[in-house]
Design a protein around this nucleic acid. Structure first.
Length: 955
RNA sequence: GGGCCUGUAGCUCAGUUGGUCAGAGCGCACCCCUGAUAAGGGUGAGGUCAGUCGUUCAAAUCGACUCAGGCCCA
């Protein structure tokens, strides 16, 4: 610009706003959070929506033992987006966050502290131990609460639900009481990892696998009832690494798909356990290995048959009829088929001792086989087990006891020992004493799946529940369909006690509602500690002799705790409602919270505690693999907050399809910031222009130009997208469509086209006022639509426009009601045509630009040769404005041969021409009437007129 | 090993009941603007639709298998 020319910039209505382009989210977000706290946004929302239909998203409780990871962030942000979007579409959506507080991981942490101090946990009074657990959980609840709030998650953070609240502990006991009273809670037995040294059960995760040398044996189980004639007179051969479990044997398992061989021994080696002429059955591809081990020098294969034809046979226990056993082992040993049988070692037959193995136990239960108790808590055989002499499996010093030797000797004496060997393998040991563990049958409490038709009720409830995505329904269904009874007891300290008394003589649990009620009342007042600090008579009252009852010392499985959250939160709280509208968690919770809540609720209330279940996938690193510290690809939410802002995480949640696994990494975060900038700058430009808008001069839609009405129609369509997305939890679609709307419809088209009018027209020019009116509406819509997602930025923009009064927040708004008349599909179709023609013009000008014929499009005034149909569309349109050229000619003449065309746009050809005239120094269009006005020699007529109407240069 | 799920351009996603050359946005390259400026506009290059084999006149879309990844089990 020449220095001697007047600067017209001050006469333009350029965007003016304090809303910065650079968000500074890491700094700004905490300020916005502070304001929400200060104005009590949560309280205002509640007051605002009082009496509206409730939308209850019941929070699945995270575990209170560490900082949040990215999965927590995904989960809570998604919940927040759903709650906010429901709140803005006519519901009252009071979100109560919760925490899971009891359980093993916290217990471990406390035990670890003891170990570090050289203290013994068992020497500490249980109530003291529990107090430390409680404090530990309390600490992490505080930490996580702040981390969740930092993500912008709105909720009743001052009154969350905690499974360790006294009220919750009371309700959990009460719920368990319902199962007790209905007869569904019963005492059964199941094998658990057991340490004979500590005389305690260990959790799976407490077992340390270390190398161990085990004695292996091959044992004959004579077939007494053959399912196939080929098995007559033969012995099934089993192989085991735990000879001491033979007394507990009650079955043999084979695999129905494996081929088995019946062999006849024809020659034996010098050292052998086999006899010439005997028939043995082993898996076909283990025949050679077995023969070698047993010293069988030669054999004949008498028959081969699949496991399917062996299953159903009956064998004799190796000690059937043995002297001194008193007929104890004379029971039948059925051959069952089982999937877990392998043929990579052993004989293809697995000896099943239901009291000494998980597979064994499941198979035994599935087939109605008794689960014998053979070993006491000190690791020694019970005296009533014949032939074992009370031998120790594991000694109190943590060494192998004599039980293996005793068993092997007796098997050999009975003539059933085919071979013996040894094996080094990984075997579980106690993490405390380092002694080998054994699987031992123990008394446990179960909730029956069949009593009161729990399984059937649960399956029916699943069918009545909506699942997002749909596949979750089948997943949960098949789990419930096949699951065993629910083992709810844990031999632990940090949990809600199983509030049951068992009669010492009958072994029957006491079922008396009055007793349950007294327990619940005590828990409500003092917490579940009351169970450990009170004399049993406090609960038993005068009706029972406390000496006749044993007080159960087990605590309940934490899944029962969280399965009861619906009872002590949805039912108990006045602001909540039962059942929940939605449960939302990671897809692993089909096995967890969805599952336990369903069973708990069906068992006590006959239906699911939720109307719908939504699952999200897991967060992977950028390459689609699991995040792991060793790979260094872990994304931590706190770091994203500090570097990019929580808003970027919120955007991330909706930028992906959360029904499957999601990914996150540096490259994606960069892309997300680009998405963010598009939204932010769209709002910024709107704000800048709206600074010039006087609502009193709002133009009615019916008086607007077509282009403005087209925008309104697009808004109407977007409204449909937003509402459908909220309804169906498809926020990815909302995000995608809104982003495209901002980028393509608005920024690249509507804004670009209307800049001329908005910046240059006279203040009260009708078209300019219409455009401003539309911008106001667009702003109104976008801030509301994006508010659930970009909760910080929309608030910032909204306050920038409407003022930061204490009762003002974008989150107190409802989604805008779009008048039905705005949608005009014919108009949208017409403008689709206009934009197709525009594309040809822009492409033609691009070519000229590359040829250096023009620079800006305003240098051109092309001739558009179009078909009559397209001319019809362009007739009512200022096509030069639309193409941002200084002039344009629509011609019905045949296009010259060198006219520009696009392959995919028929009937439009563009012939290039430069714009005629001088460049207006104000609007930069090249026009013939520049300088026509005497006062303004370097501007066009329109601008001369506009400047005249400007009240002052510094508007 | 079993159940369930996922696999479309560098990235995030669309692709209705199988049938116009597989689409969008972003990113990228190049050009323009410099009155949305750590912004804005335009043009363009990118894909054996994980792979193989089938069904069909016709498959990204149906079936089987394989590979890779995930969740839950064993």
């Amino acid at each position: 610009m020449n220095a001697d020319q007047p600067d017209y910039k001050d006469t333009l209505h350029l965007p003016r706003t304090d809303f910065p382009m650079r968000a500074g989210l890491p700094q700004r977000e905490p300020e916005i959070l502070a304001r929400w706290a200060e104005i009590d946004l949560w309280g205002k929302l509640r007051a605002d929506s009082k009496g509206r239909e409730k939308y209850i998203l019941h929070d699945g409780p995270p575990y209170a033992n560490g900082h949040l990871h990215i999965g927590h962030a995904l989960n809570k942000i998604l919940k927040d987006i759903i709650n906010r979007s429901r709140q803005m579409t006519g519901y009252d959506a009071p979100y109560v966050p919760g925490w899971d507080c009891h359980g093993l991981p916290i217990e471990w942490k406390i035990e670890e502290r003891y170990r570090e101090k050289g203290q013994d946990k068992d020497a500490v009074p249980i109530v003291e131990f529990r107090r430390e657990c409680r404090e530990f959980a309390d600490h992490w609840i505080g930490v996580q609460r702040e981390e969740f709030k930092r993500l912008g998650v709105l909720g009743d953070w001052d009154n969350p639900y905690l499974t360790m609240n006294y009220e919750a502990e009371a309700v959990i006991a009460d719920e368990l009481g319902k199962f007790l009273m209905s007869g569904a809670l019963f005492r059964g037995a199941r094998p658990v990892w057991w340490s004979a040294v500590e005389k305690t059960a260990l959790a799976e995760a407490e077992a340390e696998y270390m190398e161990h040398k085990s004695t292996t044996i091959w044992v004959r189980f004579p077939v007494v009832k053959a399912a196939d004639p080929a098995l007559e007179g033969a012995s099934v051969v089993i192989w085991t690494t735990t000879p001491w479990t033979i007394p507990g044997n009650r079955a043999v398992a084979c695999h129905e798909d494996f081929d088995y061989a019946v062999i006849e021994v024809t020659e034996v080696a010098e050292k052998t356990g086999a006899t010439v002429g005997e028939r043995l059955v082993v898996a076909r591809n283990l025949v050679a290995a077995t023969c070698e081990q047993a010293g069988i020098a030669a054999h004949e294969i008498v028959a081969t048959l699949p496991g399917a034809r062996i299953a159903g046979s009956t064998c004799a226990h190796p000690w059937r009829g043995v002297e001194g056993a008193g007929g104890h082992y004379d029971f039948d040993v059925p051959v069952l088929s089982a999937e877990f049988v392998t043929d990579d070692a052993g004989t293809g037959f697995v000896h099943i001792a239901p009291g000494h193995g998980a597979d064994d136990w499941h198979l035994g239960r599935a087939n109605g086989i008794e689960i014998p108790e053979t070993v006491g808590e000190d690791g020694c055989f019970h005296d009533f087990v014949p032939l074992m002499d009370g031998a120790a499996v594991i000694t109190q010093e943590g060494k192998d006891g004599p039980a293996n030797g005793t068993a092997i000797r007796e098997i050999a004496k009975a003539g059933k020992l085919l071979a013996k060997g040894s094996l080094r393998h990984q075997y579980p040991h106690s993490w405390r004493s380092k002694a080998p563990l054994i699987f031992r049958n123990t008394a446990q409490w179960f909730i029956s799946m069949e009593t009161n038709d729990l399984r059937a009720k649960a399956l029916q409830a699943i069918e009545k529940t909506d699942f997002y995505p749909k596949a979750g329904q089948r997943r949960l269904y098949s789990m419930i369909e096949s699951r065993p009874d629910w083992c709810v007891s844990r031999q632990r300290a940090w949990g809600v006690p199983i509030p049951v008394f068992v009669h010492k003589e009958t072994g029957e649990p006491l079922r008396d509602q009055a007793v349950v009620d007294r327990i619940v009342a005590a828990f409500r007042e003092e917490g579940a500690d009351a169970w450990f600090t009170s004399d049993p008579s406090r609960f038993l009252g005068n009706d029972y002799d406390s000496g006749a009852y044993e007080q159960v010392r087990d605590v309940v499985d934490v899944w029962f705790d969280s399965g009861s959250t619906h009872a002590f939160t949805l039912e108990a709280r006045a602001d909540q409602q039962w059942p929940a509208s939605l449960y939302l968690e990671g897809s692993d919770q089909h096995r967890g919270w969805f599952h336990s809540s369903l069973l708990e609720s069906c068992g006590t209330r006959g239906r699911a505690p939720y109307d719908a279940v939504l699952t999200h996938g897991f967060v992977m690193a950028e390459d689609g693999r699991k995040m792991s510290k060793s790979l260094g690809n872990v994304v931590v939410p706190q770091e994203v907050n500090d570097k990019y802002g929580a808003e970027i995480l919120r955007l991330w949640v909706v930028s992906e399809d959360y029904s499957g696994d999601l990914r996150i990494g540096e490259a994606m975060l960069k892309q997300l910031t680009d998405y963010y900038r598009r939204f932010r700058n769209t709002l910024r430009w709107l704000l800048g222009n709206l600074a010039h808008f006087d609502p009193a001069k709002r133009v009615d839609p019916k008086d607007m130009p077509e282009l403005e009405r087209w925008v309104l129609s697009r808004l109407s369509a977007m409204d449909g997208v937003v509402r459908a997305g909220i309804e169906g939890y498809d926020f990815n679609r909302i995000f995608r469509e809104l982003h495209e709307f901002c980028a393509v419809d608005l920024s690249a088209f509507y804004f670009d086209v209307r800049k001329d009018s908005l910046y240059c027209d006279a203040p009260d020019d009708a078209d300019r006022l219409a455009a401003l009116s539309v911008l106001d509406t667009v702003f109104d819509c976008l801030t509301a639509w994006l508010a659930p997602i970009l909760s910080f930025t929309t608030e910032e923009a909204w306050l920038a426009r409407t003022g930061a009064a204490d009762d003002n927040s974008v989150h107190l708004r409802q989604m805008p009601e779009i008048p039905a008349g705005w949608r005009d599909e014919a108009l949208e179709a017409k403008w689709a045509t206009v934009r197709r023609a525009r594309r040809v013009v822009l492409a033609a000008l691009e070519r000229k630009r590359n040829e250096k014929a023009i620079r800006a499009n305003l240098d051109a005034a092309p001739v558009v040769h179009a078909s009559p149909a397209i001319q019809g569309a362009l007739a009512t349109v200022d096509f030069a404005d639309v193409c941002i050229t200084s002039d344009i000619v629509i011609s019905d003449a045949d296009a010259p041969d060198d006219a520009f065309r696009l392959d995919d746009v028929e009937d439009v050809a563009v012939a290039f021409a430069r714009a005629e005239g001088e460049k207006c120094q104000r609007c930069w269009k090249v026009l013939p009437d520049v300088g026509a006005g005497p006062d303004a020699p370097d501007v066009c007529g329109r601008c001369a007129e506009a400047v005249k109407h400007m009240p002052a240069a510094a508007e």
